[in-house]
């Protein structure tokens, strides 16, 4: 077997191991619980509100968007955080010292983050289906479209999460470099609040980023056709949606390997040591 293929197999093994460890970890269980409780609380308190002219109840309208928001958030911040952390703690350096180690590491990271999507979506989706009437009303076709959209959404966002984790100066800076911009973009992307409620220029900014389009795509798959009146231009804009997400995916797949290689080249024992020093000195 070629060493490269063996490394990819090792990466899959790594991703699976880390995923199982994460499911067993009280820390991560707490995180999933938090996401679930907060999201369900928002839906619950708005369960009787009708959204604009669509005539839909808020949970029905918002759930597909929220799933899109969770996906983007998880797939940008998740790998970003992991990578920034593992650059500092020496995980990456260990892989750099292995034959074909970086291939294994990246495969592992992609596997882990993709798998992690499952619990973080299910923790919102399953209780919602039980608690609220009429959410996710589509049939089997809708679910299939959702699956396709999730895959496209992963391709459009995950490489950028890896880029973020590669360029952020340190894990302590993830808040300002990662969380803040991603939260801001998510906030204006029609996930929690319909995008029409924003000013025109904010709407324009939101439409540059994939979050809005993933939300739109999921709504188009799940909401009844008449709900389209709640969208910009009264259209699901399926063509532009596929185009924008496709463009982000292609750009990410071109940029991410280069940025990763550059970051990996700079890894050494001294950089890990320097990170350790920084971590011990939070205030400076």
């Amino acid at each position: 077997m070629s060493a490269s293929r063996q490394a990819v197999r090792q990466g899959l093994r790594r991703g699976w191991t880390e995923f199982v460890q994460s499911l067993r970890s009280p820390q991560d269980q707490g995180f999933y619980l938090f996401i679930g409780v907060v999201t369900l609380a928002v839906l619950w308190f708005n369960r009787d509100n009708e959204v604009g002219e669509t005539g839909l109840l808020y949970p029905t309208f918002a759930l597909p968007s929220i799933l899109g928001g969770l996906l983007t958030f998880g797939l940008v911040i998740g790998p970003g955080y992991s990578l920034a952390m593992e650059r500092e703690d020496g995980t990456l350096l260990r892989h750099k010292a292995l034959p074909h180690g970086m291939e294994g590491y990246v495969t592992g990271q992609l596997t882990l983050q993709s798998l992690t999507l499952l619990p973080s979506l299910l923790v919102v989706l399953v209780p919602s289906l039980l608690l609220f009437d009429g959410v996710m009303p589509g049939g089997a076709g809708s679910w299939l479209a959702v699956l396709g959209l999730i895959v496209l959404g992963m391709l459009a966002t995950m490489p950028w999460g890896m880029v973020l984790g590669s360029v952020v100066p340190g894990v302590q800076k993830m808040g300002t470099w990662g969380m803040l911009p991603v939260l801001l973009i998510t906030a204006i992307s029609g996930i929690v609040v319909p995008i029409q409620a924003m000013w025109g220029w904010v709407q324009a900014v939101a439409q540059v980023f994939p979050v809005y389009w993933i939300g739109l795509g999921l709504r188009s798959a799940f909401l009844p056709p008449e709900a389209v009146v709640g969208e910009l231009g009264d259209s699901w804009r399926t063509g532009p949606m596929l185009l924008v997400l496709g463009a982000w995916a292609v750009a990410g797949l071109v940029v991410a390997p280069r940025v990763l290689r550059r970051m990996a080249r700079r890894q050494s024992g001294s950089t890990v040591e320097a990170a350790r020093e920084t971590a011990l000195q939070w205030v400076r």
Partner: peptide, 8 residues
Amino acid sequence: VVLQSWRD
């Protein structure tokens, strides 16, 4: 390579 790991 024996690395001085930390908390990986």
